[in-house]
């Protein structure tokens, strides 16, 4: 990034190579479409170039990059329609269908498989009932495995406030799922 700030455009190519897949995945969380996310990833790096002089060299580059990508995605979502993040229920289903990761394993008995499947369906519904801001926190914390500090650098707020929000969101999810799903 220092090289880019000094006008070395080849440094941009290196940054793109290093972060392109991270940014694509990050954009996919918001946009769900690979092509649109790819466009946003490209746009993100162009914005990095345009705003390079605004980068504070004493700060980490990645959160700054993710913040630009986030702003672009939110703007794109609003442009498409004045709605926030899309259904996570569909997102969960897609992920499950595509990878099988969420399907119960063959080692589990039929009862357990049924219970796990049911619980995750409930979770998907509960996720969809969250507001956009809460869903974003879930995505960043549990899907992207970011720490509270990293999240606070992207969405704003303090580290402590993010921790409190995560806990509150989990409680809300649990309450909405109800304990009948069993665990």
């Amino acid at each position: 990034m220092m090289r880019l700030c000094q006008g070395d455009t080849s440094a941009l190519a290196e940054l793109v190579r290093r972060y392109e897949n991270d940014i694509l995945r990050f954009c996919l969380h918001y946009l769900r479409e690979v092509e649109r996310s790819k466009e946003m990833a490209q746009e993100t790096f162009l914005r990095v170039y345009v705003a390079r002089e605004r980068f504070d060299a004493t700060r980490n580059f990645r959160p700054w990059l993710l913040r630009i990508a986030r702003n672009l995605c939110l703007s794109e979502l609003k442009r498409k329609k004045a709605v926030q993040m899309e259904s996570l229920e569909a997102y969960v289903s897609t992920a499950r269908d595509m990878s099988g990761v969420l399907a119960p394993t063959a080692e589990d008995g039929p009862d357990v498989q049924l219970m796990v499947a049911e619980r995750r369906e409930q979770l998907a519904r509960a996720l969809d009932s969250l507001d956009a801001e809460a869903r974003e926190i879930v995505v960043l914390r549990f899907f992207e495995r970011m720490s509270a500090r990293e999240i606070s650098n992207i969405v704003g707020g303090t580290e402590g406030a993010i921790r409190t929000r995560v806990h509150r969101i989990l409680r809300k999810l649990r309450d909405r799922m109800g304990k009948t799903g069993g665990a």
Partner: peptide, 27 residues
């Protein structure tokens, strides 16, 4: 359990994200 379920959803997402090469397009 909840955290585990959420992280597994995330893992599925990561595993299924296609790889891209946009260096030329950006430049």
């Amino acid at each position: 359990t909840l955290v585990n379920d959420l992280e597994r959803i995330g893992d599925a997402m990561v595993a299924d994200t296609p790889e891209i090469d946009i260096v030329d397009a950006v430049m």
